[in-house]
Design a protein around this nucleic acid. Structure first.
Lengths: 209, 209
DNA sequence: GTGGGCATCAGCCGATCGGTTGATGCGACG
DNA sequence: CGTCGCATCAACCGATCGGCTGATGCCCAC
C-alpha cells in the first residue's frame, strides 16, 4: 500500500474499542485516536482529520447519527464506517441518510472489517449483507414500511406507557378524534391492527426502547 | 502471580472477542480457546477445562444461559463470567440463577474486566454496579416485579402480535375467560393496566424481542 | 396550482377490552 | 394437611377501542 490509512475509533464499550483497534493495528492501519462518546469523536476527527472514523451508533450523549450529521455539515473529508450491534430499520436508514459511508454489524468477521475500512477510506460504500437486504427490501416495498411522523411517534410513545386515547389527547392538547386518526395512520404504516401490536413493531424496528 | 489463569472466551461478535482476548493476553492471562456460539463454548470448556469462561449471553443457537446451566449440570469447575451488552431483568436474573460466577457489562472499563476475571478464577462473585443495583432493587421490592409464568409469556407473545383475546384462546386451546385471567395477572406483575403498556414493559425487561 | 402528506376535528357503532367476583383442580412446599 | 401459585372456567358490565366517512387548513413539491 502507498500510505497508511489513519483511523479514529469511537465506541462506548472499552472492550469493543480495544478489539477494533487491535484488529486494525494488526493490519498495519494507523489508529490515531479513540473516543468513548460522540462529542469526543467529533473533536478528534476535527483535530486529527483521519481517513476513516469507525463509529458505534449507540453511545451515551451525542448519538452516532448526530455525529455523522455534524461531520457532513462541516464537510469533513473523513469517511464514516458505522460498526454497530443493531440492524433495526430506523438505525440503518438514519445512518445512511445522515451520510454514513459504510454500515457493518459487529458479528461480521474481522476480515470484513478490514476490507470495509479499506473501502471506506477509498470512499466506497460497504454494507453488511443483512443491512443490504434490509435496505433493498425497503426500497422494493415502500408499502409496509414508511417512517412515522414526529406527531405519530409522540402518540405511540404515550400508547406504550398505557395512556388512554383521551389522556393522550389531553396530554398533546388535541381532541380525542385526532389521536384516533393518528393511531389509524400508525397502524397502517406498521401493518398492524391494534395498539399492542403497534408497540411491539415499534420496538422491533427500533422506534421505541 | 503463581500460575497463569487459563481462559476460554465465547462471543459471537469476532471484533468483541478479539478485544477481550487482546486485553486478557496483555495482562498475562492464558487464553486457551475461543468460541463463536454456545455449543462450541461447551465443547471447549469440556476438553480444555479452563479456570474461567468469559461468556456473552446473546449468541446464535445455544444461549448463554443454557451454556451455564449445562456446565453446572456437569459440575464443571470452570468459573463463568458473563460479559454482555444488556442488563435487562430477565437476562441478569436468569444468568445468576443459572449459576454465573460474575456479571459484567461491556461498557465496563478494561481494568474492571481484568479484575473480574481474576476474581472469577478465585471463585468470587463480581457484579457490574448497574447489575448489582438491579438485583438489589429486585430483592428489596418483590412487589412490582415477579417473573411471568410460561403460560403468561405465551399469552403476552400473542398479544404483542396483535392477537385478540378470542384468537389467543383458540390458539392456546383454552377459553377466552382464561386468557383474560392470564392477562390480568400479567398486568399486575408488570404494573400496567392495558396490553399495549404490557408489551412495552415486556420489551424493556427483555421478556420480548 | 394541483396533488400529496401531515395535523386537526366530528359523529357513529359494533367489537373488544379490563375489572370484578367467584369457583375448581393440581402440584409444591413445609 | 393446609396453603400458595398456577391454570382453568363463568357471567356481567361499563369503558375503551378501532373502523368508517367526511371535512378543513397548511406546506411542500412537481
Amino acid at each position: 500500500m502507498s500510505r497508511s490509512i489513519s483511523i479514529v475509533v469511537a465506541d462506548d464499550h472499552p472492550v469493543v474499542r480495544d478489539g477494533v483497534v487491535g484488529v486494525l493495528l494488526a493490519q498495519g492501519f494507523e489508529v490515531v485516536g479513540q473516543a468513548g462518546d460522540g462529542e469526543e469523536a467529533l473533536g478528534l476527527v476535527e483535530t486529527l482529520d483521519p481517513d476513516v472514523l469507525v463509529l458505534d451508533l449507540r453511545m451515551p450523549g451525542t448519538s452516532g447519527v448526530e455525529v455523522i450529521e455534524r461531520l457532513r455539515a462541516k464537510e469533513s473529508r473523513t469517511g464514516v464506517l458505522v460498526l454497530t450491534t443493531f440492524d433495526t430499520d430506523t438505525d440503518v436508514v438514519a445512518a445512511i441518510e445522515a451520510g454514513a459511508t459504510g454500515y457493518l454489524l459487529k458479528d461480521a468477521p474481522t476480515t470484513d472489517l478490514v476490507e470495509a475500512v479499506r473501502a471506506t477510506a477509498a470512499g466506497e460504500t460497504v454494507l453488511s449483507p443483512a443491512v443490504a437486504t434490509r435496505l433493498a427490501s425497503r426500497l422494493r416495498s415502500p408499502g409496509p414500511s414508511a417512517q412515522l411522523s414526529q406527531r405519530e411517534r409522540e402518540v405511540l410513545t404515550l400508547v406504550a406507557r398505557g395512556t388512554t386515547n383521551r389522556a393522550i389527547a389531553a396530554s398533546l392538547f388535541v381532541s380525542e378524534a385526532t389521536v384516533k386518526t393518528h393511531l389509524g395512520h400508525i397502524f397502517d404504516k406498521l401493518g398492524v391492527t391494534d395498539r399492542a401490536a403497534a408497540v411491539a413493531r415499534a420496538y422491533d424496528r427500533g422506534i421505541l426502547g
